[in-house]
Simulated assay, not measured.
Amino acid sequence: MSRDDAALGLRRASLLALVDHERQQRETLQVLVVWLVQLLSLHGRVEPCSTASEILRQQYRSLTPRQREVLTLVVEGHPNKRIACRLAISQRTVETHRAAVMRKCGCTSVPALARWKMAIDRAHD
């Protein structure tokens, strides 16, 4: 591997890390906006804004009942193998459901998924 290849690889890795970091910040910001709107509406500071909450509800409604079960177990910290045993499905099916949940919710990591689930739970309260 030449020095140019190594430098290019390092630049590429840095760019990928930056893109991933920005995506995580965007996910966190979306959840924070929902929480802020809910907090302000609870205290009568603003009229309840259904836009952010409605988006979360629509995302949640787009999940199948099985995907909701998998979501709950993933957020609780169960590994795919345990989820598969608990739901009496294959581990590959759990992986498929988990990927669909991540895609439909717009999350790229389990911590982001947990924050999304917390926002959903608050929106339902």
Rank of each mutant, 00 (worst) to 15 (best):
M1S: 14
M1C: 07
S2M: 07
S2H: 10
R3Q: 15
R3D: 15
R3P: 08
D4C: 04
D4L: 13
A7L: 13
L8R: 13
G9W: 02
G9L: 06
L10I: 15
R11E: 13
A13C: 10
A13R: 15
S14C: 04
D20A: 15
D20F: 07
E22A: 11
Q24N: 12
Q25T: 13
Q25S: 11
R26Y: 10
E27R: 01
E27I: 01
L29E: 11
Q30A: 12
V31S: 15
L32R: 15
L32W: 06
L32Y: 06
V33D: 07
V34G: 04
V34D: 08
W35S: 11
W35D: 15
L36W: 02
L36N: 07
V37T: 09
V37C: 11
V37Q: 14
L39F: 02
S41C: 08
L42V: 06
L42P: 01
G44K: 03
R45K: 06
R45H: 05
V46H: 04
V46F: 03
P48A: 06
P48W: 01
P48R: 06
P48F: 02
S50R: 13
T51R: 12
E54W: 00
I55T: 10
I55W: 07
R57Y: 00
R57L: 12
R61S: 09
R61T: 04
S62A: 15
L63G: 09
L63D: 05
T64Q: 08
P65Q: 00
P65A: 01
Q67S: 05
V70F: 02
V70G: 05
L71W: 00
L71P: 11
L71C: 01
L73R: 12
V74D: 04
V74Y: 01
V75G: 08
V75I: 09
E76K: 09
H78Q: 12
P79V: 00
N80V: 03
N80S: 14
N80A: 14
N80I: 01
N80D: 15
K81G: 06
K81T: 11
K81H: 09
R82W: 02
R82S: 07
R82L: 09
A84E: 08
C85Y: 03
C85N: 13
C85E: 09
C85D: 11
C85T: 13
R86K: 09
R86Q: 14
L87C: 07
L87S: 03
A88V: 04
A88M: 05
Q91R: 12
V94W: 04
E95L: 10
T96D: 10
H97C: 10
R98A: 14
A99K: 14
A99H: 09
A100G: 09
A100Y: 04
M102W: 01
R103L: 09
R103D: 10
G106H: 02
C107H: 03
C107W: 00
C107I: 02
C107R: 10
T108F: 06
V110A: 11
A112T: 02
A114F: 00
A114Y: 01
W116A: 05
M118A: 15
M118I: 04
A119W: 00
A119D: 06
D121R: 01
D121H: 02
R122W: 07
H124Q: 12
H124L: 13
D125K: 00
